[in-house]
Design a protein around this nucleic acid. Structure first.
Lengths: 335, 335
DNA sequence: TTGAAAGCGCTAACAC
DNA sequence: GTGTTAGCGCTTTCAA
């Protein structure tokens, strides 16, 4: 069984308070410093987090609730976040709610009962109802990727400027002469979906055009969903000459569907995608794309959480990051 | 601030012990049962996990250390595991060590200091040195996907029969007339890599053949790595007529490489892959593949951990699950 | 079945 | 700078 501060006290002849103070960064006589350090080493002393937590009411643990573990964007952001928080000695408990609002609410409840210090959430339920327990409980919440407007002022959020991102991409294709641009979106009602849709609409409007309704495909941000949406677009009587695919997983599905249909980019079809990930650096390097800064997002979320946790009176804020438009050669100029 | 058992005691006039006992499943008089239930509801009482943990020395938290968050196999297994454990009221802290043994060791240390009740690990360091702290500490360890032989008897493990899986797949291609079968493996030295390699060798041996050395490509289980390995195989003076790709991420890379090279399956090349995932059901449905039961693995790991945690004297064991060989139409009979 | 009381290991207020 | 001490909120003897 592990040793306690009492053991250290006995061994060094010092009082508990002195030891506790030193271990928490207080100053003690050099002589005692040495004494304690030695004892800690010899006894393999490790402070008992349970006792510390009981006393301070802090778990040094952050809860994270995401829609799905099997999504490249989420895991990429989480990887950075976890890294950052662990360096600050915070543990991260991740719960996956499988896109189910009911499960999402349960996950929040579970985490609050586990007494996490803060909650990071990529929300599935766009109403934010699942967060009420956290809010009542004064547990700080930072939303990830998706803002919930009705919770403005009560939670922080880190998002990208989705309207601008989709608008720029769409304009780029319109200006290359494409007027039939297929749009593959995520689930309807979701923050990013709506904003990317508006960006697309804005672009058309700016050029005095209107997109045909059938070009707009709502899907579900999965590889398989992307695959199906592309199939649908290709089967239209008048299929699009260009496509905007709004996340990475759906992009993979897209590439497979195009491959199967023997359609070449950009000769047969122009393409702009979202979210190319670093783990895929050398492949599809010709794609024109909207690059979301996952690493920056992850770090930004982690930092905001730490601020809320450690500083006094930090106001809640929505941080809007820009995505980067990276031109490749997957858009062909026509006419 | 949340209410405590003391508040309940005051409100009901009962003693702390009675309340504690009832809340932990003990029996009390029906009258008092009601009284307590009411008070719990009205006061929104939730037991303080910190105090409970301090008293019981259990965190009801399991630590998980994996090589990488961005890997379809790991996240798929974790999703199932997390689900199962959360149902049993265990939280899961996942740490990603980025394939780095040093980081892996730090992660283990972090989790032990957080006093997790058990450790689940898909090991990066094949020597198992990173686990010494957990073992000294008597924290039960369940290995995932990869056994560490030197730790036999000290840890449990859930793996699949990789030799059989690779052997069956290779025999299938040999018997279809292919003698030049490219093999795309993970990192050298890794349990699954070695076993899959042996399975491939066994198959050749059984047919009285020997594979050319250049056909065996060690890669890294990433999409990009798979892409590069395929490119290499295709550039051989005498390229293979068939390939065995030993995980899902590398399979994606493979499909992209083949697509770029305009190589069709199975007309130009026969192919067997590992790990098709459910999230990808309708795509590549023609692939002949080795299906690893991620869900079963995840549940099996979780169950073994719970057994170790709650039963007396459970011996450590290695559970070897079978993979399923699913014949599609991606292998062409030749000669 | 119930309640009083001890104590898990730490932190922090207070007095020295 | 240091030591004494009183809890944090629970579980668990033990006696009633």
């Amino acid at each position: 069984m592990p040793s306690t501060m009492k053991d250290i006290a006995k061994r060094t002849g010092l009082g508990l308070a002195t030891i506790s103070k030193y271990l928490n960064g207080g100053s003690v006589r050099a002589k005692n410093k040495k004494l304690i350090d030695e004892a800690v080493k010899e006894l393999h002393f490790v402070p008992n987090e349970f006792a510390r937590s009981l006393k301070t009411s802090q778990s040094r643990t952050i809860g994270v609730v995401i829609p799905d573990f099997r999504n490249a964007f989420s895991t990429s952001v989480i990887a950075t976040m976890e890294d950052y928080l662990r360096k600050k000695d915070y543990a991260v408990i991740v719960c996956d709610c499988r896109f189910d609002p009911q499960r999402e609410k349960e996950a929040v409840s579970f985490l609050i009962h586990k007494r996490v210090d803060g909650l990071i959430n990529m929300p599935t339920d766009p109403t934010g109802a699942h967060l009420s327990l956290a809010l009542e409980n004064n547990t700080p919440v930072v939303l990830l990727d998706r803002m919930i407007r009705s919770l403005s002022g009560q939670v922080s959020a880190v998002v990208i400027d989705n309207v601008a991102a989709a608008e720029e991409a769409t304009l780029h294709m319109l200006d290359a002469g494409h007027t039939d641009i297929g749009l593959i979106l995520g689930n309807q009602g979701i923050y990013t979906t709506e904003n990317r849709f508006w960006g697309y609409q804005n672009a058309y409007q700016q050029r005095g055009l209107t997109p045909r309704e059938e070009l707009i495909q709502y899907s579900d941000y999965t590889m398989e969903g992307g695959y199906a949406a592309v199939k649908k677009l290709l089967s239209l009587k008048k299929p699009p000459t260009a496509m905007l695919v709004t996340n990475f997983d759906m992009t993979l599905g897209t590439m497979i569907a195009l491959n199967e249909a023997n359609i070449h980019v950009p000769e047969d079809l122009s393409l702009i995608t979202f979210d190319k990930l670093d783990l895929f650096g050398s492949v599809y390097s010709y794609l024109t794309l909207v690059k979301q800064p996952q690493e920056v997002i992850g770090e930004c979320v982690a930092k905001q959480m730490l601020n809320l946790l450690t500083e006094e009176n930090i106001p809640h804020q929505v941080t809007m990051l820009s995505s980067e438009f990276k031109e490749g050669s997957s858009v062909r100029k026509i006419k």
